[in-house]
Each structure stands twice: as C-alpha cells, then as structure tokens.
Amino acid sequence: MRELASRIPLPRHRAADLERYRGRLASFATTSGERFVASCWDESPFGSWCGLLVAEADGCRTLYVESEILADDVRLLHDIDNVVLADVRIAQAGQEWAVEVDPVEGPPLSRLTLTLGSPTRRGAVISRLPSSVTETRGFAWFTEIMLRVLSLGVSSFRGSSRTRV
C-alpha cells in the first residue's frame, strides 16, 4: 500500500498559481460585543475593492461589499449570514482610517473612524522583513502559530480557504 501511495502525485501549488491579495485590514470590537473588520484590497483577482464585515454580539455576520461575486469570494473564508450590496470606501491618512458604507438600498451607515495605534514590537520586526519571506506559505504557517500562542487564540486562515486546495 505504501508503494502505491508514493506513486500517486499530490497536487502542488506554484507561487504563480496562487491568488494574491495585497492590501490592508483593520479590526476592532466594542465593549457590547460587536466586531468590525474593514478591508481594503489594492490588488486581488477582482481588482481593487473594499469591504466591511460586521459581527453582532449574537454572532450574526453581515458583509458589506459592492458585488455578489466579491461576497462569494469572502464566503470561501468566512461564514456570512447576510450580504448587503454597498459602496464601501476606506480612506487612510496616516494612522487614521475613515470607513464609509453606502448601501444600494436603504440609508447610508454611519461613518466609522479608526485611529490605529503604534505597531507592536512583533509588528515592527515583521514589517522590516522582505516580501520574499513574508509572502511564503511557511511564513504564514509560522505566523498562525505565533498568533495563537502569543495573542491568546487569535488565528488567521494561512492563505487558503475552506473550499480551495
């Protein structure tokens, strides 16, 4: 059996085959339990776009994004309960983010303004590493482990989704 298994080719991903997303994420939570993740992707298979994921205290997740195609892509990584088609704009000036969400139907949401703190020591070290290191799956795996250990259970998706190999 071992001999047969060694002859079955395993799928391998070359860097050129992987979908690349380059951009920024910021997240925050309120004392009443709501969580927000604002994302602005400068480069993706869909071009540049922004989105906002809102998780209510009861766990209900709503994604604000400009198209169903983008919503479907986000659903590959996250459980989403509701999708609201909206124009999401994120402006960044230094450490401040201004997030504006204008749904296709209904009134606009309140504008969110985030002021980011200084990077942690770990973040400062990571930001100095070359992209040839930080854009590898090995680095993503290492970062996942460090997030879980050093940041009390925080986790990421290590660059892959539930439905993609």
Results as ranks from 00 to 15, higher is better:
V83N: 06
S39N: 08
P9S: 08
L10D: 11
E66Y: 00
G59M: 07
S48C: 10
A5P: 01
D42A: 15
L52A: 02
V37L: 15
D79R: 10
G59E: 04
A86F: 04
R20L: 15
A93C: 05
S6D: 11
D72N: 14
D58E: 13
S27H: 11
G23M: 08
A91G: 10
A55G: 03
E56G: 03
E68F: 03
A38I: 06
S39K: 14
A55I: 00
S27K: 05
R12C: 07
A71W: 01
V88Y: 01
A98L: 06
F46A: 03
G23R: 04
P11V: 09
V37H: 10
H13M: 09
L53P: 02
S48W: 04
L10E: 12
G51N: 10
D79S: 13
A91F: 02
V99S: 00
D79I: 06
A91D: 14
I8G: 00
R20N: 05
P45D: 01
V54F: 00
D73K: 01
A38P: 08
V84Q: 09
W97D: 01
P11H: 06
L77I: 11
V54D: 01
A86G: 05
R24I: 14
T30D: 11
S6Q: 14
H78I: 13
A26L: 12
E96P: 00
H13C: 07
A38L: 09
E34H: 06
G47I: 07
R61N: 05
F28W: 15
R12W: 07
V54A: 03
S32Y: 07
D87L: 07
P9K: 14
T62Q: 07
V88P: 00
D72L: 13
C40A: 15
D17S: 13
A91L: 10
R22N: 12
L10N: 07
E100V: 07
V84M: 02
E43Y: 11
L76G: 08
L53N: 08
G59S: 07
Y21N: 10
V65L: 05
S48M: 02
R24F: 15
T62K: 04
T31S: 15
R75N: 09
P9I: 06
L10R: 12
L18C: 08
R75W: 02
Y64A: 02
G33E: 05
I8A: 01
A15T: 11
A91W: 02
V101P: 01
T30W: 09
F36P: 03
E66K: 09
H78F: 15
W49G: 06
R7K: 09
D81W: 05
